[in-house]
Nucleic acid binder design. Structure first.
Length: 823
RNA sequence: GCGAGAGUGGCGGAACUUGGUAGACGCGCUGGACUUAGGAUCCAGUCCCUCACGGGGUAGGGGUUCGAGUCCCCUCUCUCGCACCA
């Protein structure tokens, strides 16, 4: 009586044996190639893993397992993005200390990852909230500080009233809190920044050298938002007759003679200075309501109507000394460029709309053909030939920009320059659960860095860690922690009470895995040199402009400091598609459509769960979960089980029979080895699984004749088990043992295909007449065109369509297709 | 508006790298076998029209070619990201 396919028993049997044998420990044998394959650093949430997480983790696990079998040294680690806002929000919600909830949630994640039997080397597990880890996060802060890349400044900040925390621009994208989607407000605060803007150009350039999805690169380019233009200083005269500079940024300096008014953002300081008495009331009320609006309201997509108010003041265009009215309007953004623009209604659609509404003059200065057309009914934004532009008339736009830039610089009222949309990275958080910023504020010495040998600055164990209404960090309430001598003068001083953004922790974690216990620095230089950079980095697209941009920035800083010899940390990046609920909507607790790995593994086994996650659809595509599908792959595994078991029960296979059937079988084995190998390398797991299913169906068709196929059958069965091993580790190992093979299937060499076995004796040639398939023909491989044509013409269908005539034209694709064209 | 990507059976998707049997593989469905039973297993079928011969078919329209899901042009639809960035 053959054993049944009992996945639960297999899992219970092999898990402890593999742990004991250290099956997933990281080998580091010289003379072997290496693979550093990393999954995104997860924040262990309280709700645990859903099957959707497996859509990311299982494919990378399969790649790692296959590479191990191919003799690679594979680094495949996992750790926890334990510090930061999400972990802290959770702790606040459940009224438990974040150290407790984080440890518990991480343990649960790890347990669930083990349900998937992911082959992480858990001896390298790291927590970003561990002092042995954040010591080096702080060390990196000091590195940035010393290099002039960390500074304090007062700016209006994005503030989430619900989370009671400031957010970086990246976290506040679209004016809402990245965590709770609350509408953000602005708050004027002194905060720490990292000078990521100084790396804008290099962050752009580096994108050309990495193998990342185009969409992610595009998002980063868009976020950095480089635009080349000019800064031109207009002059505004205030009510007292004093002159003030009003710099504007423009990408179209060639249109400057068409400027008929200027506009500043409601927040612009010149409003206060220059507004005339008779316009004062109108301006005040406009500014008040504009500033009150939320960011989304101000940028509301369906209401682009331009509004604004005349300040009563005039700005002088330095190119023609013309005084043009100065408006305040909220379509000009305070954060971009200088917060002030010259408005050229003839050649900018926004300015055009504004000019129409307030009946301001529209002056054409660019023409496609150098002829003045007058009376524009819309803004023409194309470059062209300058008209009405004083000495620059007649020049082509591109040349005019250069010449006018040079002229402005020579005259001292402007220059060509580049502006970026990206702002410096706001790093400080008024929160408890993060790495303390290693700075001491001294009344006499100012902001003093904590000396490296005093790191880490330990996070005190606060009972009361919730943020209050003060807008200060809970750490500020811990006086004994705050009070400290100044490292410089020894006098009484106070610690910085803000902690670092959680994204600081994840900006370097990929280094730590190379040598997780190292204490002389963030990473052992030897391990760094061997493992880094990350060869394959896999995770969701939601971190496109946060984590992925910050980590690239830190890496470039490390490179400049001589710490690493690469400046792009992630050579290849892939984004997995999202797993939706069975109802096609996003899996979420509130919708009640979450499917957990625990449920599925219990019902169908870890192998079926893994296999289905690979099979359900293309890696990068979003797909809806369907339980009937996992039942399908479970059925497949049962079929594998019974076929392999009965083959093993047959005993030692007979000698190789050199017949047609055995050759055909060998062909299919090698074809499958090839297909599965290449598909895994290309992240096409769904078709790799399909190929194995096809192969099994083929083997089933030979089932009755298997003993006659001798050792070729044994080879086919063995290959099936080995090809499955990275995808379905348990059944593969159990069958390997059942077949009486020694050692673990996970320590065998990955099968290789034999090109010679892929050459077929006979081949099927499609026969087309006048472009339509009419018949097919079995011919010996390598048959000549003449032979094939001769045979084809004898086919009754072909003869009928050819009408007995000889083909006027023949196209023959060797061994595949014959196309006959009648006259 | 800008950027990225996608439109193929009842469903998820193959074939797109290299133009050459469209619908692999799985789900679902239909019929049959075995069975006390079966949400177990096995076998057969399953793009549409047609009794058949045959014809049609990859969002729509043009084009290149002996031959187009695949290449080129135009249009439409959808998803994602950014969005008054001067």
């Amino acid at each position: 009586m053959s054993p049944r396919y009992d996945f639960a028993a297999m899992e219970a049997k092999w898990r402890p044996r593999w742990r004991e044998a250290g099956l997933y420990s990281t080998p580091c044998e010289p003379d072997r190639p290496k693979l550093y394959c990393l999954d995104f650093f997860p924040y262990p949430s309280g709700s645990g893993l859903s099957v959707g997480h497996g859509k990311n983790y299982v494919p990378t696990d399969v790649v790692c397992r296959k590479r191990r079998l191919e003799g690679y040294n594979v680094l495949h680690p996992m750790g926890w993005d334990a510090f930061g806002q999400p972990a802290e929000e959770y702790a606040i919600r459940v009224h438990q200390h974040p150290a407790v909830t984080t440890a518990r949630n991480a343990a649960n994640y790890r347990r669930q990852m083990d349900v998937f039997e992911l082959s992480y080397d858990w001896s390298r597990e790291v927590f970003s909230s561990d002092p042995a880890y954040y010591r080096w996060t702080q060390w990196f802060f000091l590195l940035l500080f010393k290099r002039g890349l960390a500074y304090q400044d007062v700016h209006p900040q994005w503030w989430c009233p619900r989370c009671r925390i400031v957010l970086s621009n990246e976290q506040a994208s679209s004016g809402q809190c990245w965590r709770c989607e609350t509408e953000l407000t602005r708050k004027q605060l002194k905060q720490w920044y990292f000078k990521i803007t100084g790396y804008a150009d290099r962050l752009l350039e580096g994108l050309d050298r990495v193998v990342w999805p185009e969409g992610i690169k595009a998002m980063q380019r868009n976020w950095i938002g480089k635009s080349e233009g000019a800064r031109i200083v207009f002059t505004v005269v205030d009510v007292h007759g004093r002159q003030h500079d009003l710099p504007v940024f423009t990408t179209r300096i060639d249109t400057i003679y068409g400027a008929t008014f200027c506009v500043v953002a409601p927040e612009h300081p010149v409003v206060e200075i220059a507004t005339t008495a008779d316009q004062d009331a109108a301006v005040r009320s406009y500014v008040a309501q504009a500033v009150k609006k939320t960011d989304t309201e101000r940028k509301a997509a369906d209401d682009r109507e331009k509004t604004g108010v005349f300040t009563g003041a005039y700005a002088i265009n330095p190119f023609n000394q013309e005084g043009i009215p100065l408006f305040v309007a909220d379509y000009v953004l305070p954060d971009y460029g200088t917060g002030a623009i010259m408005a050229v209604p003839a050649h900018d659609r926004r300015d055009f709309a504004f000019a129409r509404r307030y009946t301001l003059p529209i002056r054409e200065v660019i023409s496609p053909d150098g002829v003045v057309h007058g009376d524009l009914d819309h803004a023409s934004e194309e470059p062209g030939v300058l008209v009405n532009s004083g000495p620059f008339s007649g020049l082509e736009s591109h040349e005019a920009m250069q010449r006018m830039g040079v002229y402005a610089e020579h005259e001292g009222f402007g220059c060509l320059t580049t502006d970026y949309r990206i702002h410096d990275w706001l790093i400080s958080r008024q929160r408890y659960w993060g790495a303390p910023i290693p700075i001491v504020h001294c009344p006499s010495c100012g902001a003093v860095p904590v000396p490296e040998e005093q790191l880490p600055v330990h996070l005190p164990d606060l009972v009361d860690f919730e943020p209050d209404e003060s807008g200060r960090s809970p750490l500020a309430r811990c006086e004994e922690w705050v009070r400290t001598p100044c490292p410089s003068c020894g006098g009484p001083a106070a610690r910085e009470t803000d902690t670092m953004d959680g994204f600081a922790c994840s900006s370097w974690y990929f280094l730590r895995f190379a040598s997780p216990g190292y204490s002389e620095g963030p990473v052992d230089p030897e391990a760094l040199a061997y493992w880094l950079p990350v060869d394959l980095y896999v995770g969701g697209a939601e971190h496109a402009v946060m984590h992925l941009l910050y980590a690239r920035f830190w890496t470039k800083v490390m490179y400049d400091a001589g710490l690493v010899d690469f400046d792009e940390p992630f050579t290849v990046l892939k984004n997995q598609g999202m797993m939706l609920g069975e109802d096609g909507r996003k899996m979420s607790k509130s919708l009640g459509n979450v499917v957990t790995p625990d449920q599925m593994a219990q019902r169908y086994g870890a192998d079926a769960l893994r296999l289905f996650l690979l099979f359900i659809g293309p890696f990068e595509t979003d797909v809806a979960w369907q339980e009937s599908g996992i039942a399908g792959v479970h059925r497949f595994l049962k079929r594998v089980w019974s076929l392999v078991v009965e083959s093993a029960d047959d005993g030692v296979p007979g000698p190789e029979p050199y017949d047609e059937h055995a050759r055909d079988l060998a062909y299919h084995v090698h074809k499958t080895i090839r297909k599965v190998s290449l598909d895994i390398d290309n992240f096409e797991f769904n078709t790799a699984v399909a190929a194995l299913m096809e192969f099994l169906n083929y083997l089933y068709s030979l089932r009755e004749r298997r003993t006659a196929l001798g050792s070729t059958w044994g080879f086919a069965i063995e290959s099936l088990v080995r090809l499955l091993s990275p995808m379905t580790p348990f059944i593969s190992e159990e069958l390997w043992e059942y077949m009486g093979r020694s050692g673990s299937v996970h320590r065998q060499a990955w099968p290789k295909w034999d090109e010679d076995a892929l050459v077929r004796a006979m081949t099927l040639v499609m026969v087309q007449v006048n472009g339509k398939i009419r018949d097919k023909l079995q011919v010996p491989a390598g048959a000549s065109q003449e032979e094939v044509v001769a045979q084809a013409l004898l086919l009754p269908t072909v003869a009928r369509y050819m009408g007995g005539a000889l083909p006027a034209r023949v196209v023959y694709v060797q061994d595949r297709l014959l196309s006959l064209v009648s006259a």
